[in-house]
Write a protein that binds this DNA or RNA. Structure first.
Length: 531
DNA sequence: CATGTTCGCGAGTGC
DNA sequence: GCACTCGCGAACAT
């Protein structure tokens, strides 16, 4: 309960706008760009050719599950496990079937409750489950390379123990099917990457050549889910941070949670000096000018539109359309600080047991970033500093590095190493959250960063790769859900890097409870929402 | 399941 | 410092 009721909310990831990504429905409503997503040169060559590419079916198209149905299912959830084993043989084969049509939800009732999952996990732990689930998974997903160690077990023999895979198998199928659906098509990715990279390059060139204050812009940091290989469904959201190097700065916490700071440039001449009104570097002024420059640069590209400024949002959001899919690109202004991380991070990133102390030290030697983000009213003053002029710490480069190198063993997920399901679990959680958000607008304040943070914490408590075997997706995912539900019900989810910041201080407890309840329902009924 | 493709990205190179 | 190439790994595709 500790963090509850803190004055400062912090619901969205540092580089992200409070609204932008946290509200999928808004993204959809973005004003249609004038021209279908190609810049001049290609417009000619491609405009006609690629037209007929299959549209990505909106994954939500047939998610018409009724709450009442779920309620009744709950009863079945406690149903016997032997039944499941019978079904297992029938269900495994349709797992193979690639995506699209999902079979009728015959096997829904077999889901287990969150509590059950955790009990099982703790007593079973890797071996038993691994071997058992392997049997079923092997037939379905050949890519799990850790199948080699053991022969497929005979699942039907393992009797009524709850940890037998039988009951997870049905859930597995829907999860694998869902993951399959969430994959990004190569062509779409390719088209989007081309368009995105072109404009990013152009913006950087513009800043270097035509501005003084942003001339020193550094290498773009490609952050966010697309670049972490965690983007689901469509390659339609891109985040690029443009870092302005600074020599030395003084930072002072703004508010109590340690996420926001006022910034003073120390000695020496910096092109950023012009943004210092008093001694502090005005985030609002700097962002304003940055925004103008980006607009100037993008203007000639008629296929790109600049989204309206959103309060407190550090990004200039650009919108375009590629193959009639709307794509948004967040260009995020940031300051790169090379000195040691803020004190508030001292008890954060507890990755020692998971990734090791050396890895952690490596991260802590990296710079950190500040982005012009604030919450609430910009005119709120605190020790002579206006909220709109403060900066928020960002560790998205570290998040990316962690996600990329996420195993306790170096070989995790490499060819020849064991495959884990950490990222798959996160994808599923993100997807689940976004589907729930679509159905209930009161979940607006929950965002994918909550999911990501939950996973990071989970990795720190279940540290070994054997805690996350790819063959055990269903149970791992359910455990992750259990974590999330626990955070929601407690109203506390600490920022992974700044533990004093409660990411759930935004939404009130009632909303947290509602979301927790919805997640439980989904879990107990075999995720009808995915169907 | 092996092999091919593409993108992202870091290391290396030359200027 | 900078642009550019190269090669590798991840993820998708066949």
């Amino acid at each position: 309960m500790t963090g509850r009721g803190r004055p400062h909310k912090a619901k969205s990831p540092d580089t992200k706008c409070a609204k932008g990504k946290t509200r999928p429905e808004e993204v959809k409503q973005v004003p249609p760009p004038r021209c279908p997503g190609k810049s001049f040169t290609e417009e000619k060559q491609n405009g006609t050719i690629k037209e007929q590419k299959p549209k990505v079916q909106k994954k939500t198209s047939h998610t018409e599950d009724k709450p009442s149905v779920q309620r009744t299912r709950k009863v079945e959830a406690t149903e016997n496990f032997t039944e499941i084993s019978k079904q297992q043989s029938t269900t495994t084969d349709h797992i193979k079937a690639p995506v699209q049509h999902v079979k009728a939800k015959k096997c829904v009732g077999k889901a287990k409750s969150l509590e059950k999952v955790s009990e099982e996990m703790t007593k079973v732990q890797p071996e038993a489950t691994k071997e058992a689930t392997k049997a079923s998974v092997k037939t379905t997903k050949a890519k799990t390379s850790d199948c080699k160690t053991k022969p497929p077990g005979k699942i039907t023999e393992t009797k009524t123990q709850p940890e037998t895979p039988k009951d997870t198998t049905n859930a597995d199928s829907i999860l694998y099917t869902t993951l399959e659906k969430l994959k990004i098509k190569r062509d779409e990715r390719s088209d989007a990457a081309e368009v995105i990279n072109k404009i990013v390059k152009c913006i950087i060139a513009h800043l270097k050549q035509n501005t003084i204050c942003f001339k020193e812009v550094g290498e773009p940091l490609r952050t966010g889910s697309y670049y972490e290989n965690l983007k689901i469904s469509n390659p339609d959201e891109f985040d690029v941070m443009l870092p302005m190097p600074v020599d030395r700065v003084n930072i002072n916490p703004f508010g109590e949670n340690g996420a926001f700071y006022s910034v003073e440039l120390k000695r020496g001449k910096s092109p950023l000096q012009k943004f210092q009104e008093t001694s502090i570097l005005s985030a609002s002024k700097m962002l304003e000018e940055f925004r103008e420059e980006v607009k100037k640069c993008v203007k000639p590209f008629e296929e790109w539109a600049v989204e309206r400024k959103k309060r407190g949002c550090p990004a200039v959001t650009l919108i375009t359309e590629v193959q009639s899919v709307t794509i948004s690109l967040d260009i995020v202004l940031s300051i790169m600080v090379k000195s040691s991380w803020p004190l508030f991070t001292k008890d954060g990133i507890k990755i020692e047991d998971w990734l090791g102390t050396k890895v952690k030290q490596g991260f802590k030697r990296m710079p950190y970033y500040l982005v012009p983000k604030y919450e609430g009213k910009g005119t709120v003053e605190n020790e002579g500093v206006l909220a709109k002029d403060v900066w928020r710490v960002s560790f998205s480069h570290v998040e990316k590095a962690i996600l990329k190198n996420h195993g306790s063993e170096k070989t995790c997920c490499e060819t020849g190493g064991a495959r884990c399901c950490r990222k798959d679990c996160l994808k599923l959680l993100k997807h689940l959250l976004s589907l729930l958000k679509k159905k209930d607008s009161s979940f607006d304040k929950f965002c994918s960063y909550h999911a990501k943070t939950t996973l990071l914490h989970a990795c720190c408590s279940r540290t070994k790769d054997t805690d996350w075997p790819a063959s055990n997706l269903s149970q791992c995912f359910r455990l992750l859900l259990k974590d999330f539900v626990t955070y929601l019900e407690g109203g506390v989810l600490n920022n992974f890097f700044i533990p004093t910041q409660n990411l759930l201080s935004g939404p009130d407890q009632k909303k947290c409870n509602n979301l927790a309840r919805r997640i439980r329902e989904e879990c107990d009924t075999g995720f009808p929402i995915f169907k």
